[in-house]
Write a protein that binds this DNA or RNA. Structure first.
Lengths: 232, 232
DNA sequence: CTAGATGATTGACTTTTATCAATTGGTTTG
DNA sequence: CAAACCAATTGATAAAAGTCAATCATCTAG
């Protein structure tokens, strides 16, 4: 693993406070691999052999049932995924596939569990990370249960706007079909939902979104930190 | 706090492995209180001052937005709730109200955080608990995004059946209006959904459910451990 | 026991969302 | 360049779910 990557991973909240020895030992057992786009990295139901870290590129976490599929989350650098399965030594609940050419670090789950047992700083970091993940899913759940698809889209746009710096115009960070899946609707419906937001001053040109009337959109979307603020 | 309750709490996975001193010190700062039914114990958005433990009775975790309300989960004895908020020292994401007369233990959040820092067995238990909670919400999320309301109800009934021992007939464990909310539908819709399951051999009499054709219902519901098995 | 309250159900209707089919528009590739 | 492909959009329709109002059933308080 190149030194710069090693240092980047070390800087992750999850690893930042742990003992040097333990980090080194974790990394000794780790692979780093380049994957092309659209490769299925893990499949739900399989045992969790590795904790994964997205070093570059991006990864889609998705689930299937009865021939249907839904996108649960997108993982972007630099962060980990399937920490809970690793810790519990339980089967993956979600599958993962690369969205683009990606570089992924794989740390054997049993190493993670072993060092978790011996390094209390690492254990604490894991707690914080898991609590964060838990709260994120709860927010997603509230979004899904309390809002219509139009409201979900409106709030998604406002979040995306904030995340890209707050300007009136910004780019969607993934293709619309997957945005639809993330938001829990069909692509056709997303198309119509974008139209439905026109009266509130939303203009769409390809992947470019322009919010022409911030106040109107916010009045409609009613964003709420207990749903939309991913940092707390 | 009566001795028997003290011992029951001590037996919880979360506290079972921690040092005696630390447990005693946690409990010294704790209150135990009896609440009547329908009392709002915590309100979403408030700072998380206490980790709560349901000693007896039951508690509904729910959320609201824009005048709408949805039931997120039910907590039954003996377990804790809002652990993630306590650990992160972040605002509650859900409100909680007693469903019936309930006995609740309240442990000051700062005590939990302090002992979490010093007792690594406790920290480990918290990790396991959080990972469990996280995976439960992911399952709920999959249930919601991948299934229609009829399928959710069918699978709920099968889960409930298993949980009550597996017999063909069993009781619903809460009122239908709240079941509807948990399943993400309106009470009217739940009524119709029960009718919709009649062709698969489901009979409803008040809160009593009878599954007359197990195979048929399962063929329709297609239960999946990665969604419906809450133990992994 | 009865009146009142509350939850459950039903019917009629509307809204929301999904499905299917066809078209558009851009991109890739032989 | 043209064919092939694929995501996105659009229109027509169907299915799912929500809303509103009325009624029914159950339970409880006086």
């Amino acid at each position: 693993m190149p030194d710069s990557e090693y240092r980047d991973i070390r800087k992750l909240d999850l690893f930042a406070q742990m003992a040097d020895d333990n980090f080194t030992s974790l990394m000794r057992g780790a692979y780093v691999q380049n994957f092309p786009a659209q490769i299925e990295l893990i499949t739900e139901g399989e045992p969790s052999d590795f904790l994964h870290i997205v070093v570059s590129g991006s990864v889609d976490l998705f689930s299937t049932w009865n021939g249907r599929e839904t996108s649960m989350a997108t993982v972007r650098p630099i962060s980990t995924f399937i920490l809970a399965a690793t810790i519990k030594d339980a089967p993956y609940l979600m599958s993962a596939r690369t969205l683009e050419k990606s570089r992924i670090a794989l740390i054997p789950s049993q190493d993670v569990r072993a060092i978790f047992d011996s390094d209390s700083n690492f254990a604490r970091a894991i707690v914080t990370e898991l609590a964060q993940c838990y709260r994120s899913v709860i927010k997603a759940q509230k979004d899904l249960k309390l809002r219509t698809s139009l409201e979900r889209l409106a709030n998604y746009l406002l979040r995306q706007q904030r995340q890209t710096g707050g300007g009136a115009a910004f780019e969607l960070d993934f293709e619309k079909r997957r945005l639809a899946s993330v938001l829990g609707m069909t692509p056709e419906n997303l198309s119509r939902a974008f139209k439905g937001l026109q009266p509130y001053g939303v203009t769409v040109t390809g992947t470019r979104i322009s919010i022409d009337n911030q106040a109107d959109l916010e009045r409609f979307a009613k964003p709420n930190p207990l749903i939309d603020d991913f940092s707390t």
